[in-house]
Amino acid sequence: MPFNGKSGKFNAAIRTVEIGTGDKAVKLGGENVLPFYTFDAPIENAPKIGVMITDMGLENEVAGIKDYYNGCTSFAEIAKKAEEMPGADFVVLRFEGADPNGENKSVEDCVAIAKEVGDAITAPLVIEGCKNVEKDAELFAKVAEALQGKNVLILSAREENYKGVAAAAGLAYNQKVGAESAVDINLAKQLNVLIGQLGVDQGNVVMNVGSAAAGYGFEYVVSTMDRIKAAALSQNDAQLQMPIITPVAEEAWSVKEAMASEADMPEWGSQEERGIDMEVETAAAVLASGSNAVILKHPTSVATISKLIKELV
């Protein structure tokens, strides 16, 4: 009997979702193999990198980030610089300041910033909220309306506000919809089902299945992503074949390894290097677990992960 080598290529595939318009539009997903298994079948769309900027400007950022954006005085200039960052595929605008428990910026102010950023760049744009479900629902609807025609990804609809967010972004204004669950495989699937039942084309949905910095319950993140990719590919589960995007920067830069000052922890060495290490390690790990895109902020992290992806795909 002749030997038949078996390929690990699946009969199912992750859906391809395009964000942005024109030459710089990016495609997420599309693969029919496990992450980076290019020896089983070609991976047409390599994982992508988004560069995160926030509505809070640069004040709270580390020196390396401030240096990179040196001279930028407006959101438009910061955004422009972000899209030019070597290794960047898209820009992520995060409305940290919209949080009612923080700066509580008005929806109108946020929409103005979104428009300024949207008009300044040609790279695809992803919008992140402040995690307050009511405020985000209001904010996302207005931003989705203001950025019509730009094919942005709204990150994200959650269990508590998916009706409003998915209906505005996915149905009324024809943007892409992020479906966010916090490291809960059953909810990740359920949310996709519910968004589909609203009438949103499942080809317009990207999942954020949750993240954590490496070392902070990260095993759950990995097992969640593993199970989702297994369901999507080996069980051909249409409700889980959405590409995955993982916001890494906000998790990685908010753990003690990245935040403790050198004065407090001299034996840990440079604070900025620690932050970069956390960001790179977390991003590499979620990519290896199946993320189709990661959101980072430090230029060194973006360059490192970009090189990693280029070497592997």
């Binding site: 909810l187 089902v193 589960d237």
Partner: peptide
């Protein structure tokens, strides 16, 4: 465990 559970599993 042939199919991942979601509350709407009977509808899909």
């Amino acid at each position: 465990n042939n199919n991942l559970y979601a509350d709407s599993y009977l509808e899909i």
